[in-house]
Design a protein around this nucleic acid. Structure first.
Lengths: 341, 341
DNA sequence: TTACCAACAACAACCGTTTGCGCAACTGAT
DNA sequence: ATCAGTTGCGCAAACGGTTGTTGTTGGTAA
């Protein structure tokens, strides 16, 4: 029942644990004959190294802390998959630390990373109004940090994000180019940086086109259900919008049914575009034109960045030059926007 | 930069590390005066215990391995949330081990659990054709195991599952009770136990009602996209079904648009019911009647079971009596089924 | 005065693994 | 025969904490 250790192997062979340790990692100091014998026995006894002990000794774990606001069905599953695929191949494991959108929990999660001596922290912030004071704890840990998607600006950490402003701009411009003139936007929590940037892009595209920016056509929906209500309200206005920009998957899945129920013909009377992870738009009815914000890719890139940081962190000295990687999402035209002629 | 350790504190105070250790956990052997002084300094130096070291010494980690087939947007996010909420409060952390629906990876994940000396393993199996041979590795680890949802029968581990047969039966019976006579079923991967059980319940409900069970009305869709195609095919039949049972969220989100596109009036010409985690049915158009298979609850229960097992595992001897907890999902009637009169 | 007992703190072993160092035995060149 | 240079392995300390045991006080009861 007890796990077999290096000592067990050493004892059975009447040799020293250190010899076993070296043999198992093909240290040339150990003779080939003994080496193979040790390996054979290790295999027989189902020997598996105890990572805890290794971590302790070498002061470097192979655990990565993943701190995200919440485990929702949107975006994060793809991100996790991307991260996981990269990290696994590099021999790292992920410890999941959802913050439940709470600042205290986020701090606690950082502590947990510290206690578990993680090799690195991947971080998407919760939607409290951002202050960076509590993040000094991140410094103390000394482990590299990579932020993604829900980031805080001005932090000395690398990040992988969407071109938020540009994406919203492109989306709205596409609506305008295909004939929309009264464009509404349904956004997420206004405290988030991505919301602000997408809102800015939204507004800029409208004013650049010489259209009037109407605050009544803008709403902030903290959930799919709220988005549904907000969309309904929009469609019930005396002059409803003829184009709608939805900021995320969470928003579009809530608002689309409300738009459809309003009876307006899509896209003729009301066109729709959103920013999406790329799965839902094909499943919804009608299929929604979207900018592909690929969570899987975000995860992969963030994880790769993480591995790089761990690599250089071990060798060279500190030359922190935080780098923000911006992804440009491609436009995928489906059924909810009119065609250019 | 270096983490402060117990030794650092001891040194600064000119006392022994063991004294510090005891003081920090309020051992009565240490005088109150010294105890508070130690705690104060520990706080000042941002002391955080090194879990690795503690694990090593006490041979019991506070890590739980979570092995799931894949991080999809369906079901698992809720489950993870449930598990996480329970485990976090008990001071445990989750290490995420998706198997990518691969047997080899699943085995590897079990190994990783072993290497990291997890305190327990929570397990949902991938959809390979089930063999249990490779699971001997689970025994070796000695840590308690709890299975959920995608389980393999006959294993000596506790489990939390849906009343699969009964749920499908209830769903289909509801369709029949509200007037459907030609009922189709869209299922997931046929290798899964849940698929087989739900299929059995589906069939039983139909034959119990004296209706004819028609294989042409049954399809197995391994993805949402496949479900979309399969639903389309169903609706294009010379005599299309007038009632459809979708086994999961993944199935319903794929098939619903196809059904709607077919032009049939829902629910008058074609009623729909599914088993769902409870979020999507409200977002879809039309809102889908469903049996609420609450992933969050599954996660909570499985995690609580896990904690119990860890508890008793430490104290008492081995009295393995594996217990399967069956959840009965409530029926939530929305827009896709006719009302009983 | 002696005996005894708290109270308090130090000592040291230990968890499993790694790793610098030392040392014996062997090799081959002188 | 001598010496330098391998080769092959053991010894012991270390990583950070925990814990059983021991030892030193000072106080109290006999």
């Amino acid at each position: 029942m007890k796990r077999t250790t290096i000592k067990d192997i050493a004892q059975q062979l009447g040799i020293n644990p250190s010899t076993v340790s070296r043999a198992l990692k093909d240290h040339p100091d150990i003779g080939l004959a003994l080496r193979t014998e040790i390996k054979k026995l290790a295999h027989q006894l189902h020997y598996r190294p105890n990572h805890m002990a290794v971590y302790l000794r070498q002061r470097s774990s192979r655990l990565i802390g993943l701190i995200i606001p919440e485990v929702t069905m949107f975006f994060y599953p793809s991100v996790i998959k991307g991260i996981q695929n990269v990290l696994h191949d590099a021999g790292y494991n992920l410890i999941m630390l959802p913050s439940n959108e709470s600042l205290e929990r986020e701090i606690e999660n950082i502590q947990i990373c510290s206690e578990n001596d993680v090799a690195g922290i991947m971080l998407a912030f919760s939607r409290y109004r951002h202050t960076t004071e509590h993040l000094s704890a991140l410094e103390d840990i000394g482990a590299p940090v990579v932020m993604f998607d829900k980031i805080i600006e001005g932090l000395p950490y690398d990040a992988v994000v969407l071109e938020d402003f540009q994406s919203a701009y492109t989306a709205v411009k596409h609506l305008i180019d295909t004939g929309c003139t009264r464009i509404a936007g349904i956004f997420g929590n206004p405290d988030l940086r991505i919301t602000q940037l997408r809102l800015d892009g939204f507004r800029q595209a409208i004013t650049d086109a010489g259209l009037e920016y109407n605050e009544d056509y803008v709403c902030f929906s903290d959930s799919s259900y709220q988005a549904e209500k907000d969309a309904r309200t929009l469609m019930e206005k005396p002059i409803p919008p003829d184009g709608i920009f939805a900021m995320t998957d969470e928003i579009i899945i809530g608002s689309l049914p409300a738009i459809v129920r309003s009876g307006k013909k899509v896209p003729e009377e009301c066109a729709i575009i959103c920013i999406s992870d790329g799965f839902l738009p094909y499943c919804l009815y009608p299929k929604v034109t979207f900018l592909h914000h690929d969570g899987y890719q975000v995860g992969r890139l963030a994880a790769e960045k993480m591995l790089q940081l761990i690599e250089i962190g071990q060798n060279s000295s500190e030359d922190k030059k935080s780098e923000v990687l911006m992804l440009k999402p491609p436009l995928i035209e489906l059924d909810t926007t009119r065609k250019l002629v």
